[in-house]
Design a protein around this nucleic acid. Structure first.
Length: 268
DNA sequence: GTACGGCCCTGTTAGC
DNA sequence: TGCTAACAGGGCCGTA
């Protein structure tokens, strides 16, 4: 389930190997979520950026290939042409130098789009995404203001990508635990909003430093696993003792996502 | 405009 | 042992 740290890890691996290369040929699984892969045939790649959980691959004709890895999406290089024997291969780009970038996705929650550079009107979550976690403009005051625009549970707000971009289920649970804030709380004061922002920045930075979290499917662009799963305090630990106070962690479903928290440290 | 629920997918796991 | 059902979850869309 790639979130910001996993996508950033992949981006860092892709950038030096993709920039200034030409897509000689492209193909895809026959589904509208993947067929846009073919639209960059012939283009030269000029950059690989990240916005929230989206990868943005810019081309020399002022367009962008927008990639969302969904839950099980993987980008990887393979020598020669695509491995069409892989039943989960959803898209591929054959590059100059006889190497192929493959997009495999078991559950098909990933998706691809090709847009005019910067025009994300057709991708609402990207178009409406909040600031990047380390954007200097993202002060506690601004974060507090963004959170105040909705009366939904904090967990739901974080997953919406609107107050801040790049947080998914794992890092939301971790950040709320670090900040000692209950995921069902709907409004925060300025001080606690600042504490939550710091916790989000801390947990995402740690995720990036550890190369992402591999629980089941996530692999980076070189096929390696992340290490951050060994550093999780809260996510997926329901029934285990809290690392701070030893109280048993509990879980519930919020916004259709299993959410874990400490009933003592994170009182409502 | 906002909130909410359902849907897309398939491998894994639990229960019978 | 083998089958069935539940579960995992990010983003989009329709409805209220």
């Amino acid at each position: 389930m790639p979130e910001l740290p996993e996508v950033e890890t992949v981006r860092r691996q892709l950038e030096p190997r993709l920039v200034n290369r030409q897509v000689l040929e492209a193909g895809s699984f026959d589904h509208p979520k993947f067929t846009p892969a073919r639209d960059v045939t012939g283009a030269f790649i000029r950059g690989v950026r990240r916005r929230g959980k989206y990868l943005l691959v810019s081309t020399d004709d002022h367009r962008e290939l927008v990639v969302h890895l969904g839950m099980t999406g993987q980008l990887r290089f393979t020598p020669g042409g695509p491995n069409t024997e892989d039943p989960y291969l959803r898209a591929w780009w054959h590059l100059d130098g006889d190497e192929t970038l493959e997009f495999a996705d078991v559950r098909r929650f990933g998706r691809l789009r090709v847009v005019e550079a910067g025009n994300y009107a057709g991708i609402p979550t990207l178009a409406n995404a909040g600031p990047e976690p380390w954007d200097p403009a993202l002060t506690p005051k601004l974060f507090h203001s963004l959170l105040s625009q909705s009366k939904r549970a904090l967990k739901t707000q974080l997953l919406s990508q609107r107050p801040i971009a790049g947080v998914g289920n794992i890092y939301a649970d971790e950040a709320l635990w670090i900040a000692k804030i209950n995921p069902k709380v709907k409004q925060l004061g300025l001080e606690r909003a600042g504490r939550l922002l710091e916790a989000i920045q801390e947990t995402l930075r740690q995720g990036v430093d550890n190369g992402g979290t591999t629980l089941r499917d996530y692999r980076n662009a070189e096929g390696g696993e992340g290490e951050n799963q060994h550093a999780l305090f809260c996510y997926g630990r329901s029934g285990e003792p809290c690392g701070r106070c030893n109280t048993t962690l509990v879980s519930d479903v919020i916004d259709a996502r299993t959410t874990t928290w400490c009933p003592r440290c994170q009182k409502r």
